[in-house]
Amino acid sequence: MKTVQAYKKDNSWIYLTDMQALNNPLVLVFGNRYLLEDTTVIDDIRKEFPYEHLVFGSTSGEIAGENVIENSIAITAIEFEKSSFVIKRDNILSHNKNAVELGKALYEQMPKENLKHLFVLSEGSFVNGSSLIAGLEDNVFKNVCITGGMCGDDARFEKTLASYKENPKEGEVVLIGFYGDTLEITFASVGGWQPFGPERIITKSEGNILYEIDGKPALNLYKKYLGDKAEELPQASLLYPLNVTIPGKEVPVVRTILNIDNDAQSMILAGDAPEESLVQLMMATVDGIADGANKAALYAMHNRKTMPQVALLISCVGRKLVMNQRVEEEIEQVKEMIGDTTTITGFYSYGEMAPFVNSNFCELHNQTMTLTLISE
């Protein structure tokens, strides 16, 4: 495996590796949404990396090496020497915003022979991440796992962009299939947030829209907890996500509030929160988040036969806001576990996708550090 990594900031290209020509690489382009909307920037990317398989995704911050960057374009080109990849794309707007059907259609397109792993890069505005995963896993081979993330737009929540080959646009979901017996791919997802306050019951919800908790309007109850910070919604919700224990599941998931509807007194979450689920507020410290990143790397490295050559890091925008000037500490925690020779790339997201530890079934997470470690 060969990699070339660079980022563009303030109209200058900064290379983190030696420049070299690659043979038919997978090129991951993570960047600020405004920059990805600029056709002159896209033209410059294509000139600097004149390859076929460019995958674009907007972010809430870019990860390149040990660096967490903002208002930039971070590019990692990966040449697979012993294995291969296939990329498919579809648009949620072509499926009447039905993420389950989109997931099914995407997986149907993917060749199945020797499929080792699936990585999904989803737009983060229209897609219900839980439903997308349900569609992808509907007929998935039991030994094929899914990881990935949902694109971001800093803390604006205006719109997100993604694409494969084409210029970035709204509604796109990109699925990358990795193939070959030489591949070793491991993963993990850990948060580091702590629940607080009383445990309540979701009494009315529909998909990822939360209407009532304990029979009371959800948004009104949430605002009471936030106090003065309620004036800063929906951005303030990134600091106080929900801990949701879904009926029939032992391990809770974290749900970020993406938007609010004052008229309906409801909250739009990044994933499903079914009725009868138990729910609590959560909060975090910088040290707790950094420790979560360390544990994620520890779990992802457990029982690996080879050292990872590429690490794909998807971390939540809420973690970035809490850590602020110390945000690179969670990247440092990961690097300590995976070693100095691994190419690290990724972005801050509106949702992370990975199975729980000791499971093959993917879940949508929020407020976690999610790692996908690849070697061949």
Rank of each mutant, 00 (worst) to 15 (best):
M1E: 08
Y7G: 02
K9T: 12
S12I: 11
Y15V: 06
F30V: 00
Y34A: 15
D38C: 04
I42W: 00
P50R: 04
P50I: 13
Y51E: 11
Y51Q: 05
E52C: 06
E52P: 01
E52W: 03
H53T: 10
G57I: 07
S58H: 05
S60L: 04
G61C: 03
A64W: 03
G65W: 03
E66N: 15
I69W: 03
S72C: 08
E81Y: 00
S83W: 01
F85W: 06
K88M: 06
K88R: 15
R89H: 10
N91D: 15
H95I: 02
K97P: 08
K97E: 15
N98I: 08
A99T: 09
M110W: 10
M110Y: 01
L121G: 06
S125N: 11
F126V: 06
F126K: 13
V127S: 06
E137M: 15
T147M: 02
G148R: 01
G148W: 01
R156T: 14
F157D: 05
E158P: 02
K159V: 03
S163H: 06
S163E: 06
E170I: 11
G171N: 03
E172V: 14
V173P: 03
L175H: 09
G177A: 01
Y179P: 02
F187Y: 15
G191I: 01
P195G: 09
F196H: 13
P198G: 11
I201E: 15
I202A: 08
K204F: 08
S205F: 08
I209G: 07
I213Q: 05
N220G: 05
G227Q: 06
D228P: 14
P241V: 08
P247K: 10
V251F: 04
V254L: 14
T256E: 12
N259G: 12
A264E: 15
I268A: 11
A270H: 10
S277K: 07
L278H: 12
Q280N: 12
M282C: 02
M283E: 15
N294C: 08
N294W: 09
K295N: 12
L298H: 10
M307I: 04
A311D: 02
L312C: 06
L313E: 00
I314V: 13
I314Y: 08
M323L: 15
V327P: 01
V327F: 01
E330F: 00
E336L: 04
G339D: 12
D340I: 06
T342P: 00
T345D: 09
Y350K: 01
E352A: 05
M353H: 05
A354I: 07
P355L: 08
S359H: 12
E363P: 00
E363K: 12
H365Y: 08
S375M: 03
E376V: 02
